[in-house]
Protein backbone atom coordinates (compact mmCIF):
# COMPACT_ATOMS: atom_id res chain seq x y z
CA UNK A 1 0.00 0.00 0.00
CA UNK A 2 2.81 2.38 0.85
CA UNK A 3 4.20 2.38 -2.69
CA UNK A 4 0.84 3.31 -4.23
CA UNK A 5 0.08 6.02 -1.68
CA UNK A 6 3.48 7.67 -2.27
CA UNK A 7 2.52 8.05 -5.93
CA UNK A 8 -0.67 9.86 -5.20
CA UNK A 9 -1.10 13.43 -6.41
CA UNK A 10 2.08 13.34 -8.51
CA UNK A 11 2.14 14.52 -12.11
CA UNK A 12 1.19 11.99 -14.79
CA UNK A 13 2.30 12.25 -18.43
CA UNK A 14 -1.15 13.56 -19.30
CA UNK A 15 -1.11 16.29 -16.66
CA UNK A 16 2.41 17.32 -17.73
CA UNK A 17 1.22 17.65 -21.30
CA UNK A 18 -1.70 19.78 -20.19
CA UNK A 19 0.67 21.98 -18.20
CA UNK A 20 2.82 22.53 -21.32
CA UNK A 21 -0.25 23.43 -23.37
CA UNK A 22 -1.33 25.79 -20.66
CA UNK A 23 2.04 27.55 -20.68
CA UNK A 24 2.02 27.78 -24.47
CA UNK A 25 -1.50 29.24 -24.54
CA UNK A 26 -0.53 31.77 -21.96
CA UNK A 27 2.52 32.93 -23.93
CA UNK A 28 0.56 33.24 -27.16
CA UNK A 29 -2.14 35.36 -25.56
CA UNK A 30 0.40 37.48 -23.76
CA UNK A 31 2.40 37.93 -26.96
CA UNK A 32 -0.66 39.19 -28.82
CA UNK A 33 -1.39 41.65 -26.06
CA UNK A 34 2.16 42.99 -26.20
CA UNK A 35 1.96 43.16 -30.00
CA UNK A 36 -0.78 45.73 -29.59
CA UNK A 37 1.50 48.34 -28.09
CA UNK A 38 4.39 47.84 -30.49
CA UNK A 39 2.78 49.67 -33.44
CA UNK A 40 1.74 52.51 -31.17
CA UNK A 41 5.26 52.98 -29.86
CA UNK A 42 6.71 52.75 -33.34
CA UNK A 43 4.28 55.27 -34.79
CA UNK A 44 4.74 57.76 -31.99
CA UNK A 45 8.50 57.32 -31.92
CA UNK A 46 8.85 57.66 -35.68
CA UNK A 47 6.63 60.72 -35.80
CA UNK A 48 8.51 62.46 -33.02
CA UNK A 49 11.88 61.69 -34.53
CA UNK A 50 10.94 63.08 -37.93
CA UNK A 51 9.02 66.02 -36.50
CA UNK A 52 11.64 67.08 -33.99
CA UNK A 53 13.28 69.92 -36.00
CA UNK A 54 9.98 71.75 -36.34
CA UNK A 55 8.44 71.21 -32.93
CA UNK A 56 8.25 74.39 -30.88
CA UNK A 57 5.67 76.67 -29.36
CA UNK A 58 6.01 79.06 -32.26
CA UNK A 59 5.13 76.23 -34.63
CA UNK A 60 1.74 76.13 -32.91
CA UNK A 61 1.20 79.87 -32.98
CA UNK A 62 2.68 80.84 -36.35
CA UNK A 63 0.70 80.95 -39.54
CA UNK A 64 1.95 79.05 -42.60
CA UNK A 65 4.46 81.02 -44.66
CA UNK A 66 5.93 80.96 -48.15
CA UNK A 67 3.12 79.03 -49.80
CA UNK A 68 2.78 76.76 -46.77
CA UNK A 69 6.30 75.42 -47.11
CA UNK A 70 7.38 77.00 -43.84
CA UNK A 71 5.85 78.55 -40.74
CA UNK A 72 3.34 77.07 -38.31
CA UNK A 73 -0.14 75.63 -38.12
CA UNK A 74 -2.16 78.08 -36.04
CA UNK A 75 -5.07 78.48 -38.49
CA UNK A 76 -5.51 74.73 -38.82
CA UNK A 77 -5.36 74.21 -35.07
CA UNK A 78 -8.00 76.86 -34.43
CA UNK A 79 -10.15 75.50 -37.24
CA UNK A 80 -10.06 72.00 -35.77
CA UNK A 81 -10.99 73.33 -32.34
CA UNK A 82 -13.97 75.18 -33.84
CA UNK A 83 -15.15 72.15 -35.76
CA UNK A 84 -14.80 69.72 -32.88
CA UNK A 85 -16.52 71.88 -30.31
CA UNK A 86 -19.34 72.97 -32.53
CA UNK A 87 -20.03 69.44 -33.73
CA UNK A 88 -20.05 68.03 -30.21
CA UNK A 89 -22.19 70.92 -29.00
CA UNK A 90 -24.78 69.65 -31.44
CA UNK A 91 -24.34 65.90 -31.22
CA UNK A 92 -23.80 65.52 -27.47
CA UNK A 93 -27.17 66.90 -26.29
CA UNK A 94 -29.13 65.18 -29.03
CA UNK A 95 -27.27 61.92 -28.59
CA UNK A 96 -27.53 61.86 -24.80
CA UNK A 97 -31.21 62.75 -24.71
CA UNK A 98 -32.01 60.23 -27.43
CA UNK A 99 -30.12 57.56 -25.54
CA UNK A 100 -32.03 58.39 -22.36
CA UNK A 101 -35.27 57.92 -24.24
CA UNK A 102 -34.17 54.66 -25.81
CA UNK A 103 -32.83 53.22 -22.59
CA UNK A 104 -35.29 54.52 -20.03
CA UNK A 105 -38.60 55.05 -21.77
CA UNK A 106 -38.79 53.06 -24.98
CA UNK A 107 -40.52 49.72 -24.76
CA UNK A 108 -39.62 46.84 -26.99
CA UNK A 109 -41.84 47.37 -30.00
CA UNK A 110 -41.28 47.73 -33.72
CA UNK A 111 -40.72 51.47 -33.79
CA UNK A 112 -38.00 51.43 -31.18
CA UNK A 113 -36.38 48.42 -32.78
CA UNK A 114 -36.32 50.46 -35.96
CA UNK A 115 -34.58 53.32 -34.16
CA UNK A 116 -32.04 50.90 -32.73
CA UNK A 117 -31.38 49.48 -36.15
CA UNK A 118 -30.95 52.98 -37.54
CA UNK A 119 -28.45 53.87 -34.83
CA UNK A 120 -26.38 50.75 -35.44
CA UNK A 121 -26.37 51.23 -39.18
CA UNK A 122 -25.62 54.92 -38.98
CA UNK A 123 -22.54 54.06 -36.94
CA UNK A 124 -21.37 51.84 -39.75
CA UNK A 125 -21.74 54.36 -42.57
CA UNK A 126 -18.32 55.27 -44.03
CA UNK A 127 -17.24 58.82 -43.40
CA UNK A 128 -17.05 59.63 -47.10
CA UNK A 129 -20.77 58.88 -47.34
CA UNK A 130 -21.43 61.19 -44.42
CA UNK A 131 -19.41 63.76 -46.35
CA UNK A 132 -21.62 63.45 -49.40
CA UNK A 133 -24.72 63.63 -47.26
CA UNK A 134 -23.40 66.74 -45.55
CA UNK A 135 -22.64 68.31 -48.87
CA UNK A 136 -26.16 67.72 -50.11
CA UNK A 137 -28.03 68.42 -46.91
CA UNK A 138 -26.18 71.28 -45.27
CA UNK A 139 -24.17 72.96 -47.99
CA UNK A 140 -26.85 72.94 -50.69
CA UNK A 141 -30.28 72.08 -49.30
CA UNK A 142 -30.00 74.05 -46.07
CA UNK A 143 -27.98 76.75 -47.83
CA UNK A 144 -25.29 76.96 -45.17
CA UNK A 145 -22.72 76.94 -47.96
CA UNK A 146 -19.20 75.66 -47.53
CA UNK A 147 -18.76 76.72 -43.95
CA UNK A 148 -17.83 75.75 -40.43
CA UNK A 149 -21.54 75.24 -39.71
CA UNK A 150 -21.94 72.73 -42.52
CA UNK A 151 -18.77 70.88 -41.63
CA UNK A 152 -19.63 70.77 -37.92
CA UNK A 153 -23.13 69.48 -38.58
CA UNK A 154 -21.71 66.78 -40.82
CA UNK A 155 -19.29 65.75 -38.11
CA UNK A 156 -22.15 65.84 -35.62
CA UNK A 157 -24.19 63.40 -37.69
CA UNK A 158 -21.15 61.18 -37.88
CA UNK A 159 -20.48 61.14 -34.13
CA UNK A 160 -24.14 60.96 -33.07
CA UNK A 161 -24.70 57.19 -33.29
CA UNK A 162 -21.58 56.41 -31.32
CA UNK A 163 -22.56 58.88 -28.62
CA UNK A 164 -25.99 57.28 -28.44
CA UNK A 165 -24.45 53.83 -28.14
CA UNK A 166 -21.93 54.78 -25.47
CA UNK A 167 -24.51 56.74 -23.48
CA UNK A 168 -26.91 53.81 -23.55
CA UNK A 169 -24.18 51.59 -22.26
CA UNK A 170 -23.46 54.01 -19.43
CA UNK A 171 -27.15 54.21 -18.54
CA UNK A 172 -27.59 50.47 -18.66
CA UNK A 173 -24.76 50.02 -16.18
CA UNK A 174 -26.77 51.76 -13.45
CA UNK A 175 -28.09 48.92 -11.30
CA UNK A 176 -31.72 48.08 -11.78
CA UNK A 177 -32.24 47.97 -8.03
CA UNK A 178 -31.84 51.76 -7.90
CA UNK A 179 -34.62 52.17 -10.40
CA UNK A 180 -36.80 49.70 -8.54
CA UNK A 181 -36.26 51.62 -5.33
CA UNK A 182 -37.49 54.76 -7.05
CA UNK A 183 -40.49 53.20 -8.77
CA UNK A 184 -41.67 51.69 -5.54
CA UNK A 185 -41.95 54.99 -3.77
CA UNK A 186 -43.91 56.32 -6.72
CA UNK A 187 -41.21 58.24 -8.58
CA UNK A 188 -41.95 58.99 -12.20
CA UNK A 189 -39.45 57.93 -14.80
CA UNK A 190 -38.12 61.46 -15.12
CA UNK A 191 -37.68 61.78 -11.37
CA UNK A 192 -35.86 58.47 -11.39
CA UNK A 193 -33.60 59.58 -14.20
CA UNK A 194 -32.79 62.90 -12.62
CA UNK A 195 -32.26 61.69 -9.07
CA UNK A 196 -30.53 58.41 -9.65
CA UNK A 197 -29.79 57.37 -13.21
CA UNK A 198 -27.99 60.43 -14.55
CA UNK A 199 -25.84 61.17 -11.48
CA UNK A 200 -24.59 57.60 -11.54
CA UNK A 201 -23.90 57.37 -15.24
CA UNK A 202 -22.52 60.81 -15.93
CA UNK A 203 -18.90 59.68 -15.89
CA UNK A 204 -19.55 57.03 -18.51
CA UNK A 205 -21.59 59.42 -20.62
CA UNK A 206 -18.90 62.11 -20.56
CA UNK A 207 -16.20 59.63 -21.38
CA UNK A 208 -18.15 58.45 -24.40
CA UNK A 209 -18.64 62.00 -25.61
CA UNK A 210 -15.04 63.04 -25.10
CA UNK A 211 -13.76 60.02 -26.96
CA UNK A 212 -15.67 61.30 -29.96
CA UNK A 213 -13.47 64.38 -29.94
CA UNK A 214 -10.67 62.32 -31.38
CA UNK A 215 -12.86 61.02 -34.16
CA UNK A 216 -14.19 64.46 -35.03
CA UNK A 217 -10.70 65.91 -35.00
CA UNK A 218 -9.21 63.17 -37.12
CA UNK A 219 -11.74 62.80 -39.92
CA UNK A 220 -10.83 64.46 -43.17
CA UNK A 221 -13.41 63.47 -45.72
CA UNK A 222 -16.52 64.99 -44.10
CA UNK A 223 -14.97 68.42 -43.64
CA UNK A 224 -13.16 68.42 -46.97
CA UNK A 225 -16.52 68.21 -48.74
CA UNK A 226 -18.33 70.71 -46.58
CA UNK A 227 -16.18 73.43 -45.13
CA UNK A 228 -12.44 72.92 -44.88
CA UNK A 229 -10.05 74.69 -47.22
CA UNK A 230 -6.39 74.38 -48.12
CA UNK A 231 -5.43 77.82 -46.99
CA UNK A 232 -6.92 80.80 -45.32
CA UNK A 233 -5.34 84.04 -44.18
CA UNK A 234 -5.39 84.35 -40.42
CA UNK A 235 -3.50 86.55 -37.98
CA UNK A 236 -0.89 84.84 -35.87
CA UNK A 237 -2.34 83.70 -32.55
CA UNK A 238 -5.84 85.04 -33.34
CA UNK A 239 -8.29 82.68 -31.71
CA UNK A 240 -11.38 84.27 -33.22
CA UNK A 241 -10.06 83.79 -36.69
CA UNK A 242 -13.17 82.41 -38.33
CA UNK A 243 -16.83 83.29 -38.54
CA UNK A 244 -19.20 80.35 -38.42
CA UNK A 245 -20.36 80.98 -41.97
CA UNK A 246 -16.77 80.96 -43.26
CA UNK A 247 -14.63 78.12 -44.37
CA UNK A 248 -11.69 77.17 -42.23
CA UNK A 249 -8.50 75.21 -42.18
CA UNK A 250 -8.24 72.04 -40.12
CA UNK A 251 -5.37 69.89 -38.92
CA UNK A 252 -6.33 66.69 -40.68
CA UNK A 253 -6.94 68.50 -43.94
CA UNK A 254 -3.75 70.52 -43.52
CA UNK A 255 -1.74 67.34 -43.08
CA UNK A 256 -3.21 65.93 -46.27
CA UNK A 257 -2.47 69.15 -48.16
CA UNK A 258 1.11 69.43 -46.95
CA UNK A 259 1.87 65.81 -47.71
CA UNK A 260 0.37 65.54 -51.15
CA UNK A 261 -0.51 68.89 -52.68
CA UNK A 262 2.27 71.34 -51.92
CA UNK A 263 5.74 70.88 -53.43
CA UNK A 264 8.86 71.77 -51.48
CA UNK A 265 7.49 71.63 -47.95
CA UNK A 266 10.17 71.44 -45.31
CA UNK A 267 10.31 67.77 -44.52
CA UNK A 268 9.62 67.92 -40.80
CA UNK A 269 6.51 70.10 -41.05
CA UNK A 270 3.96 67.41 -42.02
CA UNK A 271 5.31 65.20 -39.25
CA UNK A 272 5.09 68.02 -36.76
CA UNK A 273 1.50 68.62 -37.84
CA UNK A 274 0.75 64.95 -37.24
CA UNK A 275 2.34 65.15 -33.83
CA UNK A 276 0.15 68.12 -32.93
CA UNK A 277 -2.97 66.29 -34.10
CA UNK A 278 -2.00 63.17 -32.22
CA UNK A 279 -0.98 65.15 -29.17
CA UNK A 280 -4.25 67.08 -29.08
CA UNK A 281 -6.25 63.87 -29.33
CA UNK A 282 -4.21 62.11 -26.66
CA UNK A 283 -4.54 65.14 -24.43
CA UNK A 284 -8.31 65.08 -24.76
CA UNK A 285 -8.43 61.33 -24.14
CA UNK A 286 -6.25 61.73 -21.08
CA UNK A 287 -8.68 64.37 -19.83
CA UNK A 288 -11.50 61.89 -20.34
CA UNK A 289 -9.68 59.26 -18.32
CA UNK A 290 -8.86 61.71 -15.55
CA UNK A 291 -12.48 62.85 -15.43
CA UNK A 292 -13.68 59.29 -15.29
CA UNK A 293 -11.31 58.44 -12.46
CA UNK A 294 -12.41 61.54 -10.56
CA UNK A 295 -16.13 60.88 -10.97
CA UNK A 296 -15.72 57.16 -10.22
CA UNK A 297 -13.98 57.99 -6.99
CA UNK A 298 -16.94 60.06 -5.89
CA UNK A 299 -19.56 57.38 -6.37
CA UNK A 300 -19.72 54.24 -4.33
CA UNK A 301 -22.24 51.49 -4.28
Amino acid sequence: MSSSSSQRFTATPLSRRKARQEALARWIFCGMAVAMIVPLLLIVGYLFERAWPSLSLSFLLEVPARGMTEGGIWPALVGTIYLVFLSLAVSAPIGILAAVYLNEYAGDHWFNRLINLAVINLAGVPSIVHALFGLGAFVYAARFGYSIVSASLTLAIMTLPVIIASTREALASVPRSFREACWNVGATRWQTIRAVVLPNSISGILTGVILQVSRAAGETAPIMFTGAVFYKVVQKGDFFAYGLHQQCMALSMHLYTLSTQVPGVKESIPFATAVVLLGAVLLVNATAIALRVYLRARKRW
Binding site: S177, A181, C182, V185, A195, V196, P199
Partner: peptide
Protein backbone atom coordinates in the same frame (compact mmCIF):
# COMPACT_ATOMS: atom_id res chain seq x y z
CA UNK B 1 -44.39 50.56 -0.78
CA UNK B 2 -42.03 47.70 -1.39
CA UNK B 3 -38.89 46.32 0.25
CA UNK B 4 -36.61 44.03 -1.71
CA UNK B 5 -34.52 40.95 -1.22
CA UNK B 6 -31.23 42.80 -1.45
CA UNK B 7 -31.31 46.08 0.42
CA UNK B 8 -31.34 48.75 -2.25
CA UNK B 9 -30.63 52.09 -0.64
CA UNK B 10 -30.20 54.81 -3.22
CA UNK B 11 -26.63 55.99 -3.73
CA UNK B 12 -27.31 59.05 -1.57
CA UNK B 13 -26.85 59.94 2.06
CA UNK B 14 -28.91 58.33 4.80
CA UNK B 15 -30.84 61.57 5.18
CA UNK B 16 -31.63 61.90 1.49
CA UNK B 17 -32.73 58.29 1.32
CA UNK B 18 -35.34 58.87 4.01
CA UNK B 19 -36.67 62.12 2.55
CA UNK B 20 -36.51 60.84 -1.03
CA UNK B 21 -40.20 60.03 -1.10
CA UNK B 22 -41.14 63.43 0.32
CA UNK B 23 -39.01 65.20 -2.23
CA UNK B 24 -40.63 63.26 -5.02
CA UNK B 25 -44.19 63.80 -3.88
Amino acid sequence: GMVFQRPNPLPLSVYENVVFGLRIH
